[in-house]
Amino acid sequence: MDSIKSGREADADFSDYVAARQHALLRTAFVLTGERASAEDLLQTALAKTYLSWSRIRDPRAVDAYVRKVMVNEHTSWWRRAWRHQEHSTGQPPDGVGTAAAGSGQADGVGERDAMWSLVRTLAPRQRAAVVLRFYEDLSEAETAQVLGCSIGTVKSQTSRALASLRRQLSEAGATSPAGGS
């Protein structure tokens, strides 16, 4: 009975955690993927993997970091998979991750109105993850490095390249997007 009881307790703890943190985590997934359907799928996968590791995550304060890490890794791996399944004829990596409709950003009501939002989706997944963690989650460089599993120097270079890319693309587009400058 003990194991059943502890299993039920663990399930209850997990449910409480999801209820409390789901929306915040979904927002992070959304800025990572840029698509609501993909975001829900990404978060569901990350929560499933977290559930499987629930008994091993001893520090409740570490759960968010764990879920974030799974989401970033999973998103990168989706992107890679999608990239490999392309014909590579254009040399361009796929935008978004997988099968969600390309126009779902419009359905979410944010995509086309914000030039910057659209450009973030053109970044390579590691660069996108770096800017999301640094500028959306407000993580420090060290915390970002922890989530990405790389050195602080790499976080700096990924972030710097991402910002340079955004700056260049905005400049090339004339930086005239009405919503881009907010």
Partner: peptide
């Protein structure tokens, strides 16, 4: 602008 854009996008969810 990036920070604003990310937060505005997330707020719309």
């Amino acid at each position: 602008r990036l920070r604003d854009s990310l937060h505005r996008g997330a707020d719309a969810l």
